[in-house]
Amino acid sequence: MTDPDRVIHEPARLRIMMILSGVDTVDFSFLVSTLGLTKGNISSHMSRLEQAGYVEVRKSFNGKIPHTDYRLTAPGHEALADYWSALDQIRGVSDGEKE
């Protein structure tokens, strides 16, 4: 049985990955307002996802205000799909034990 990806498994990071899987790009403010987490918290999760190569970060400026966009990379999409299948396998075992 495959172990689920530890990077994705953290609930906040999983939510971030799920949001990113539905759209093309989101910015930092959107993640903060949608998830209701602190900026520091989101920032550390995004760094972790970026290090894993699951998220691409694009920094720019809106006038003088810094702006950060995030996009799920192809390995990120793949890792999320693998995560769900790993979880389905665990669920299958769990449901089998209950029966």
Partner: peptide, 14 residues
């Protein structure tokens, strides 16, 4: 529009 959306942030669908 960016001013109105400044609190909730930006989202783009490809």
């Amino acid at each position: 529009a960016r001013h109105f959306y400044r609190i909730e942030g930006e989202v783009a669908v490809s």
